[in-house]
Design a protein around this nucleic acid. Structure first.
Lengths: 106, 106
DNA sequence: TCATGTACTACGTGAAACGATACAGCGAAC
DNA sequence: GTTCGCTGTATCGTTTCACGTAGTACATGA
């Protein structure tokens, strides 16, 4: 992968997409905007549609019958389950890490 | 990256390493064990030492004068700052995502 | 002495993040 | 009335890097 060139990544695109879809079905462009606001991460089109295709093929999201040009996606049960699991792990790691940082620097 | 082949990744190795080092200086092998216990993620040697080299070259960690075969690393100021920032973002995303999941499925 | 644990190094492969680019419809500006 | 910007999706090429495997080396203990 070619993650962020100079920084430390903290969440992969797939997780950001699933989190965005947890707020309800969205199409690609809406996901980009939602993720920008909510996480401050701007997904490029290549990243987004590549990740969407992989998530669909793995059964974590499902394409809805789209009006006009939009192709909305929604979470599947498997997607919700995976997301919940990952988010809990993230929260635990974040709490633990922040606690370590606090005690390490008085 | 070629993250986890079939799953959705929730943290990249670099973040796990920084979090581990937030508990104090450690050498490679100790980081592997710490990360296993704390996050349930087993880093292979290729993953670990590759990530360590990149983190050092970016100034987020620093190698300490090592006794015998061990090469301990410690967080730099920049590393702590980046880590704190990422962990806070992670915690926020996790809270937001879990809240969305809760309200979406009554 | 042979296996096991510790500790690091080297390398090849494949996945995929990312930017660039293209295309198309729409409304507003001018 | 065409130029501009926004919306919306899609593809391509490059580069990065996660991961597995294998190897080296030393120490310990059965």
């Amino acid at each position: 992968m070619a993650r962020n060139k100079t920084e430390v990544a903290w969440a992969d695109p797939a997780l950001l997409i699933l989190t965005s879809l947890a707020g309800g079905p969205k199409h690609g462009y809406a996901i980009i905007q939602d993720t920008e606001e909510q996480a401050g991460v701007t997904l490029g089109p290549g990243t987004l549609y590549g990740a969407l295709a992989r998530l669909e093929e793995r059964g974590h999201i499902r394409a809805l019958p789209g009006e006009d040009r939009r192709r909305p996606y929604e979470l599947t049960a498997s997607g919700s389950a995976v997301l919940a699991e990952r988010l809990k792990a993230m929260r635990n790691l974040a709490s633990e890490g922040l606690a370590r940082l606090r005690t390490a620097q008085p």
